[in-house]
Amino acid sequence: MSVTGPAEAPPADGLAIDFVVVSDRAQLNEIVQRVRDGRVRANIGTVATLDDAVAALNPTKRVKGKTIIRVRP
């Protein structure tokens, strides 16, 4: 499946589903509970301030994990 756009190549023997992710309180609760009890860990790469956000969001080399802008310390 492809999350935000058409699947690049529909499977020969299957169903391609495109969907737009939406916020869902119950699912967020499930996910954060898994983080708290160690079943799931976050994948955070770079953390930068809002003042440094433009540079952090324009990386010059490939980054691993999610870039998070820490707006307040």
């Binding site: 999350v3 992710v21 939406v22 916020s23 869902d24 699912q27 967020l28 499930e30 996910i31 954060v32 983080v35 799931v40 976050a42 994948n43 955070i44 994990g65 999610k66 998070i68």
Partner: peptide, 10 residues
């Protein structure tokens, strides 16, 4: 960091 990846995967 959880919101978009977590909801998308879920």
């Amino acid at each position: 960091s959880l919101a978009m990846p977590g909801l998308t995967a879920w």
